[in-house]
Design a protein around this nucleic acid. Structure first.
Length: 696
RNA sequence: GGCUCUGUAGCUCAACGGUUAGAGCAGAGGACUCAUAAUCCUUUGGUUCUGGGUUCGAAUCCCAGCGGAGCCA
């Protein structure tokens, strides 16, 4: 039975570029959509830019242009990145569209009619320079609990306290630096509590949510009365003015998810379809793919809005975890923050599509991009196992084409064909990692078949030509099966395979029938091995890119910057002589006696603070265990956010002679690699080391 | 701080409360030479974070501790 499925990914915010963290979601979704289309379901994939809110407004003003210009430019950039990664939306809209405005009004009317909207006066911070109210996270100041400076207005990264922005000591606006003033404002709220009973049932029953998400909602929100949701923002605000409340605008999180419907509407108009058939019909399944950070918007507010306004509820909200790179949070200061466009400059998008697929499950666990593993996976699985099958047999088969009848292969093809349902089920349930493994097992068996039948030996004997053709027919058919199973992940490979064998692949079911009597075209490389040096260049370029590259600032052409260093030979890991050339090895020897004079220790950073009057230094308090501490001024300010250092272990010299500085006395030196400035990389011991350990 | 997850081989991950905890990669040895130093065979790696408990039986369930991730409208 053909299903009718509407799929969405979260709307990227029009204030930043797409990076490889975002791509976890778009690739996960794109793979799912391609799978659905391949098996013959009617599937439409929509998305849009999320364009409203204070951040966009302020940015436009700071850049001296209109919000419309800003969002138009980001839209272009986003689309370019998505296209580059083979993400195929059926429609890519914008929350700043006529369709969205109309739908917002419609849903708003429903909420009014259901008597869910109330007015209340709240006190908010107001930026007198930018003339706008400030969300908590747009205010910084000293934590009212532990008095750490430079904390955001909603919670303290040092002590973990949460509070209201109005409690912060010495607050400033992050936009203008001005001291915000308190101002009363009449706001509109949705009384979510009125739908508490229904939400309880919807979230806790059925298959709408992953189990851990249902638990999370139960434990965190549904166990107590639901707070009213503040959905309005006073002028100035970039968004839609609320029709029945002049001077008030819908909060960006009100109109953003409605953008899913608006984008669908655009698609319907372009394809002669009715919106009702997609959003108000039992025949349609809605599937949202989102990250775990925006869980509550999509699992409480959004269902409540849909329910009230009479739209389809999602059949499933698929929630994924975050991307880490080499075991750490993606971070701009440490150079593991890779944008989509930087990646595309150096590497084939197919690599990332496969790598993510090989690691994704249906759980909300985070996914770690380990760059060494990335190289190994691609080279071993895709090039070594899959593509190799074609590579080692296509040339033998080219003169004759495929055999007219499918030969006896000992049941291999049938065996792999029988896996189709299992693999389909794994795609359907987002267990891509398991699907990839199942496919690789088939690839291993196929390689063994080639090994056992040694076509290269058959080739030497003209009498065995028929046998040779048969063996290659089997191998290429097994390869073709793999290409079909991998098509949702690697659409390009599927197309190339279709061309190689003169038989385009259109459907999942083609894995059930062997291809015979088809000509074989000259073989071209289907996929290149990953060169670790390219990965290296990519991370280096990411490190040298300006920290928060906003689209508006004229892009420093980082490609030319990356090309400048003289190309030097690299070892097998891609390490070049660059660093050694800049700082040659010391020629004089150091005796063991000299070395042991230096007392190197493992310490834990207890506190890390900016130093007033210095743009280079951070003041660190290091613990050596118990109550033994050392104070160190380290020149790493440009490379590290203080908050990211607290709690981590570092290596430092504990018996360096104390040095008086303008700011205090420094009692040691933290060990770090790099050239200085933003290029500083603090050393850490492997796990297992204890605070206070001496380094020998 | 609260909540939801999470900790298994060097790395990435499997394992309905039930044989001797398994795969891939990496490592070691061998075969092969068609293939992008690819492939095939054999093989070394585990105190399942720690400590208690429940059970005939625990990686799995419970409690505590330690570490990691996220969220807190």
């Amino acid at each position: 039975m053909t299903r009718q499925i509407l799929v969405t990914s979260a709307l990227p915010y029009a204030n930043g570029h797409i990076h490889i963290g975002h791509l976890v979601e778009y690739l996960q979704t794109d793979i799912w959509v391609r799978f659905q289309k391949l098996v013959g379901n009617r599937c439409v994939y929509v998305c849009a830019d999320d364009t409203h809110g204070t951040a966009i407004m302020i940015r436009a003003r700071q850049e001296g242009r209109s919000e419309l210009e800003v969002i138009a430019e980001m839209r272009e950039s986003h689309l370019k990145d998505f296209t580059g990664f083979g993400i195929e939306f059926d429609n890519y809209g914008s929350t700043h569209s006529d369709e969205n405005r109309a739908l917002c009004a419609e849903i708003w009317q429903s909420l009014r009619k259901a008597d869910l909207i109330v007015e209340r006066t709240v006190e908010r911070f107001y930026d007198p320079v930018e003339e706008t109210f400030l969300a908590d996270r747009f205010v910084k100041g000293t934590c009212p609990v532990c008095e750490s400076p430079d904390q955001y207005g909603d919670n303290c990264e040092k002590c973990g306290a949460t509070y209201d922005a109005t409690e912060v000591i010495d607050p400033i606006s992050i936009f203008s630096g001005a001291t915000p003033i308190r101002r009363e404002s009449l706001q509109l709220f949705v009384e979510l509590e009125k739908l508490h009973g229904w939400l309880n049932e919807w979230t806790q029953t059925g298959e709408h949510l992953q189990e851990e998400i249902a638990n999370y909602l139960q434990g965190h929100f549904l166990s107590k009365p639901l707070r009213d949701w503040d959905v309005s923002r006073p002028a100035r605000y970039f968004g839609f003015e609320i029709p029945d409340s002049p001077g008030k605008y819908w909060f960006v999180w009100f109109d953003a998810p409605i953008g899913y419907i608006a984008s669908t509407h655009q698609w319907c108009k372009a394809h002669g379809e009715k919106l009702e058939d997609w959003w108000k019909s039992d025949q349609t399944e809605i599937h949202h793919f989102i990250g775990k950070d925006i869980t509550y918007f999509h699992t409480l507010f959004w269902p409540a809005m849909l329910k009230t306004a009479g739209f389809n509820l999602p059949k499933k909200v698929h929630i994924h975890g975050f991307l880490q790179v080499n075991g750490e949070k993606m971070s701009k200061s440490k150079g593991v923050f890779v944008t989509a466009s930087t990646y595309l400059k150096h590497l084939d998008p197919a690599y990332l599509r496969y790598y993510y697929a090989s690691k994704l499950s249906s759980r909300t666990e985070d996914l770690d991009l380990n760059l060494d593993e990335f190289v190994a996976r691609i080279n071993s699985d895709l090039v070594g196992k899959v593509v190799n099958l074609a590579s080692r047999t296509a040339r033998f088969a080219q003169p004759t084409g495929l055999s007219a009848q499918y030969p006896d292969d000992g049941g291999l093809f049938a065996e792999a064909a029988a896996e189709a349902d299992k693999i389909a089920e794994l795609y359907e349930t987002c267990e891509y990692a398991k699907a990839m493994r199942a496919i690789m097992v088939l690839a291993e068996k196929a390689n063994k078949y080639v090994e056992d039948n040694a076509p290269w030996t058959l080739k030497k004997d003209p009498a065995q030509a028929g046998q040779l053709q048969d063996v290659c027919t089997v191998a290429l058919n097994l390869f073709r099966q793999l290409a079909i199973y991998l098509a949702p992940v690697l659409p390009q490979l599927a197309e190339q395979t279709g061309r190689l064998l003169n038989a385009p692949m259109k459907s999942w079911d083609e894995a059930q029938t062997p291809l015979v009597a088809s000509p074989v075209n000259p073989f071209e490389h289907l996929m290149k091995r990953v060169d670790p040096a390219q990965v290296q260049v990519m991370t280096e370029e990411s490190q040298s890119a300006p920290a928060a590259a906003p689209a508006a600032t004229p892009q420093v052409d980082s490609s030319s910057a990356a090309a400048t260093p003289a190309p030097t030979t690299a070892n097998a890991f891609g390490d070049t002589l660059e660093a050694l050339t800049k700082e040659p090895l010391t020629e004089a020897y150091c005796s063991i006696d000299d070395f042991v004079k230096v007392d190197l220790r493992v310490g834990r950073v207890l506190t890390a603070d900016f130093v007033d009057g210095s743009d280079k230094l951070l003041k660190l308090t290091l613990s050596l265990g118990g109550d033994v501490t050392k104070t160190i001024f380290a020149g790493i300010r440009q490379a590290y956010e203080p908050a990211t250092l607290v709690g981590r272990m570092v290596v430092f010299c504990a018996n360096l002679a104390p040095r008086k500085m303008r700011f205090g006395t420094s009692e040691g030196m933290v060990l770090a690699a790099g050239e200085g400035g933003t290029q500083v990389f603090v050393l850490s011991p492997d796990s297992g080391a204890k605070v206070g350990h001496r380094i020998h």
